[in-house]
Design a binder for these strands. Structure first.
Length: 353
DNA sequence: CCGTATGATTTCTA
DNA sequence: TAGAAATCATACGG
């Protein structure tokens, strides 16, 4: 009721209808003595004000009558205008929200994980079938892989069905509200613009729900990933050839076993592993070698011989270039036969790294 | 099953 | 920020 009174008060101050009467308690009485149009408006307002005191049937009839009144469109416009200027302008200022960075991050992740976006290779059914099929030929990794994919497909399916549900609910609700407002706009000052804004509000609400869905889907995927693909949990030893390549490099650069970035890349390519795996390997190798040189003597000797043979094959040119660095491998092969603690200690003190 | 090996991660430092 | 050191978690062989 308060709103209504305010709008009425506003109305008298607008559109040239009884301009001097704002807030005057006698305005109604005064209006009644004015000319025909003003009196019409006054009557209508009176009727509107009184409508809540009437019985339902009376009100219904009155509503119909008012609705057909010739002044109705004009009055409707004016009321809309006032409403626009008072109520809506206050909270309607919420700027058109730009794509939320948070939701964009979630979207990107879901896309990257293959949860949203185009389905790959026939989707969940195919993945499940693959998982089932893999049961027959048990290559360890293939089981895990298809199991992972099946789970991912499950998440994907849930995500999509939920998303669809939300979208459907959103459009149903929007329609409902729009119809309601359209219906009401016959008796209440509701402009199309306001309906539009209402729809935007609804969409925002629903998109925040969708964000929650996306968030929990992301979490589920992360958990799945850590369960199945976390390299630390499912550690595989490098193959023999890879460790051989790495050891060869390590022992032939024993005086300075710090491969450059390029060398790491080269090694990574040779071994079929990543550069950071190469870094990890050298980090581990250095520390473990340094901690217990004795344990590694045999290995060191083996690779020293190997590189010596290689060096011989490659001929003098290489050994010349490496001369400041290579003596170490020579000393190592001499020491290899002796394994007492003192030698080990000496050895460790020889290391410059 | 247990002890060791080993790749990855975490924490700290220069 | 790369590397050292400690630690974690799994692989693997006896």
């Amino acid at each position: 009721m308060d709103d209504q009174t305010r709008m009425m008060t506003g109305l008298t101050g607008l559109g040239g209808l009884a301009q001097g009467d704002v807030g005057d308690p006698d305005s109604v009485r005064k209006q009644q003595s004015l000319g025909q149009p003003q009196q019409d408006i006054g009557d209508i307002l009176q009727q509107i004000m009184a409508i809540t005191d009437e019985s339902l049937d009376e009100a219904q009839a009155r509503k119909h009558a008012l609705n057909c009144h010739r002044m109705k469109p004009a009055l409707f416009n004016v009321l809309c205008e006032i409403k626009e200027k008072t109520v809506l302008s206050i909270r309607g200022v919420q700027e058109e929200d730009p794509p939320d960075p948070q939701i964009m991050r979630l979207d990107n992740m879901l896309l990257a994980e293959g949860v949203s976006g185009p389905e790959k290779g026939g989707g969940s059914a195919a993945a499940a079938a693959a998982a089932a099929a893999a049961g027959g030929s048990p290559t360890d990794s293939s089981i895990e892989h298809s199991d992972y994919r099946a789970k991912l497909a499950q998440i994907r399916q849930i995500y999509h069905s939920e998303l669809e549900k939300y979208e459907q609910a959103c459009s149903e609700f929007t329609n409902h509200v729009m119809n309601l407002l359209r219906e009401q706009s016959r008796t209440r000052p509701i402009s199309p613009k306001e309906i539009e804004r209402m729809v935007a509000i609804i969409h925002r609400k629903f998109s925040s729900i969708q964000m929650q869905l996306k968030q929990s889907t992301c979490e589920a995927v992360m958990i799945l990933r850590s369960r199945f693909l976390d390299a630390r949990r499912k550690r595989r030893n490098f193959n023999k050839q890879a460790t051989e390549v790495l050891n060869e490099y390590f022992y032939s650069h024993l005086s300075n076993p710090y491969p450059s970035e390029e060398a790491k890349e080269e090694l990574a390519k040779k071994c079929g592993i990543t550069v950071s795996q190469v870094s990890n390997w050298f980090g581990n190798k250095r520390i473990r070698y340094k901690k217990n040189i004795g344990k590694f003597q045999e290995e060191a000797n083996l690779y020293a011989v190997k590189t010596a043979v290689d060096a011989a094959n490659v001929s003098a040119q290489a050994s010349q270039a490496n001369s400041p660095a290579t003596p170490n491998s020579g000393t190592l092969s001499c020491q290899a036969s002796e394994t007492d603690l003192q030698i080990e200690r000496n050895n460790s003190s020889q290391l410059s790294w």
